[in-house]
């Protein structure tokens, strides 16, 4: 454990960000997916003014969950394919730092997609969604998705069915996040108080990050 913890986290994060800046593969495909998904949703659900009010936060979050799954699968599959995962595991660094680095990368990408999505949804659905509280909810919610998602994706990319298994394993587990963030988003759109819900999301985040940090060591064993 020679390299300091923070330095490892940021090296991995920097690597992921640099790869992304050069290829622009992940964020652009995630963003494109979310736009398409929102358009298809509004067609399929025939979202008129009334229905929109009820459904818009659900649509937003389900879309973001799938975008996050998309990103996680890609980011961890490429680590394995290029053999970088093995290199990181051989290196004398703390496993929790590797987890944090990978988790932050996915977190940042998904937050970017979410933030880009807000003005788009504002235009499409005529709700003012670009608010500081919305950004806060995005950050807290996506932290929950990325933290448990990184742990599960590290497992599922090592299985036979790979990409198909992550949504199956992840969707039920992130249900507490989805439930609470959808409630919080609804509360914001209706100008209601959402401190209580925010606290619940924070607790779930802490729980997931703790679980992820402690269990990551075991899913990277060989």
């Amino acid at each position: 454990m020679n390299t300091p913890f923070i330095q490892v986290v940021f090296s991995i994060l920097r690597k992921d960000l640099r790869t992304e800046l050069r290829s622009r593969e992940l964020v652009s495909s995630m963003a494109l997916f979310t736009f398409l998904s929102i358009l298809v949703f509004s067609f399929a659900l025939e979202l008129d003014r009334e229905a929109k009010q009820e459904a818009v936060s659900g649509v937003l979050w389900v879309t973001l969950v799938f975008a996050s799954i998309l990103g996680l699968n890609r980011s961890l599959a490429s680590e394995r394919e290029e053999g970088n995962m093995d290199a990181m595991l051989i290196a004398p660094v703390n496993r929790i730092a590797i987890y944090m680095g990978k988790m932050l990368g996915n977190f940042i990408f998904t937050v970017i997609v979410g933030v880009v999505l807000l003005p788009v949804m504002t235009v499409l659905f005529n709700f003012s969604m670009v608010r500081p509280t919305m950004i806060l909810i995005l950050i807290l919610g996506i932290l929950g998705l990325s933290s448990i998602g990184t742990l599960l994706a590290t497992m599922t990319v090592q299985t036979r069915s790979r990409e198909t298994l992550l949504p199956i394993a992840m969707l039920p587990v992130v249900l507490p996040v989805i439930l609470t963030v959808v409630r919080a988003t609804n509360a914001i759109l209706n100008n209601q108080d959402m401190m209580q819900t925010l606290l619940t999301i924070g607790l779930v985040d802490v729980l997931y990050i703790t679980l992820g940090s402690f269990l990551f060591e075991y899913v990277t064993e060989d």
């Binding site: 448990i148 742990l151 599960l152 039920p172 587990v173 249900l175 507490p176 729980l207 679980l211 075991y218």
Partner: peptide
């Protein structure tokens, strides 16, 4: 066994 143990622990949240 390793992965199943990890997922079994995570799944209790539901």
């Amino acid at each position: 066994r390793l992965f199943a143990s990890v997922y079994g622990i995570v799944a209790i949240t539901t």
